[in-house]
Simulated assay, not measured.
Amino acid sequence: MKQKKIPLRKCLITGEMKPKKELIRVVRSKEGEVSIDPTGKKNGRGAYLTLDAQIIEQAKKKNILSSQLNAEVSESIYEQLINLANQKNGHS
């Protein structure tokens, strides 16, 4: 039986290729709205980050999402990402 191919994506910060399920996608719509895309299926320009609070903090410091998505990324997006990372890693 042929093994199913696991879709890999690259984390913007670490540069590591990881299975799509281990990363979180942040997407910019045609209208320029930036949102978190937990399903990975929204239309628009996507950028992937490892779901880890430290990595998200690094992305925030470097403002890497804004430059990758060519859009303003609000503070609330980073807060939501950190909350998701903390939930995933068992912190609340």
Results as ranks from 00 to 15, higher is better:
residue 81 L to N: 06
residue 13 I to L: 09
residue 80 Q to M: 12
residue 8 L to M: 15
residue 89 N to P: 00
residue 32 G to N: 02
residue 76 S to Q: 12
residue 87 Q to Y: 09
residue 49 L to V: 05
residue 66 S to A: 15
residue 2 K to G: 04
residue 55 I to F: 08
residue 4 K to N: 04
residue 80 Q to C: 09
residue 79 E to D: 10
residue 15 G to H: 01
residue 5 K to L: 15
residue 81 L to Q: 03
residue 1 M to R: 09
residue 4 K to D: 02
residue 24 I to A: 01
residue 92 S to Q: 08
residue 84 L to Q: 11
residue 23 L to P: 09
residue 56 I to T: 04
residue 71 A to N: 11
residue 42 K to R: 15
residue 18 K to D: 06
residue 15 G to R: 07
residue 79 E to Y: 04
residue 81 L to D: 02
residue 35 S to W: 00
residue 21 K to A: 13
residue 77 I to R: 00
residue 59 A to G: 08
residue 37 D to P: 05
residue 25 R to S: 08
residue 40 G to A: 13
residue 17 M to A: 10
residue 48 Y to S: 04
residue 75 E to L: 12
residue 89 N to T: 07
residue 11 C to W: 01
residue 58 Q to C: 12
residue 79 E to H: 06
residue 29 S to I: 05
residue 73 V to R: 11
residue 22 E to F: 02
residue 44 G to P: 10
residue 26 V to I: 13
residue 23 L to H: 08
residue 52 D to V: 07
residue 58 Q to F: 09
residue 72 E to V: 10
residue 3 Q to W: 03
residue 50 T to H: 14
residue 57 E to D: 14
residue 14 T to Q: 02
residue 79 E to P: 00
residue 34 V to A: 08
residue 49 L to S: 07
residue 10 K to E: 09
residue 19 P to W: 00
residue 75 E to V: 12
residue 65 L to N: 05
residue 79 E to N: 11
residue 11 C to E: 04
residue 20 K to L: 01
residue 70 N to D: 15
residue 19 P to R: 03
residue 5 K to A: 14
residue 17 M to W: 14
residue 50 T to Y: 12
residue 75 E to Y: 09
residue 6 I to W: 00
residue 22 E to N: 10
residue 5 K to V: 11
residue 58 Q to K: 14
residue 90 G to E: 08
residue 85 A to P: 00
residue 53 A to M: 08
residue 6 I to D: 00
residue 27 V to P: 07
residue 18 K to T: 06
residue 76 S to H: 09
residue 57 E to L: 15
residue 26 V to F: 05
residue 59 A to L: 11
residue 68 Q to L: 01
residue 92 S to R: 13
residue 83 N to K: 15
residue 32 G to F: 05
residue 67 S to D: 05
residue 11 C to L: 06
residue 35 S to I: 12
residue 50 T to F: 12
residue 28 R to I: 03
residue 76 S to A: 10
residue 72 E to R: 15
residue 1 M to A: 15
residue 64 I to P: 01
residue 85 A to K: 05
residue 34 V to C: 09
residue 24 I to D: 01
residue 37 D to K: 10
residue 79 E to F: 09
residue 32 G to I: 03
residue 14 T to C: 00
residue 39 T to V: 04
residue 83 N to S: 15
residue 41 K to F: 05
residue 50 T to I: 12
residue 31 E to P: 03
residue 91 H to L: 12
residue 56 I to C: 09
residue 85 A to S: 06
residue 44 G to E: 08
residue 43 N to Y: 04
residue 12 L to I: 06
residue 48 Y to I: 09
residue 7 P to Q: 13
residue 12 L to N: 07
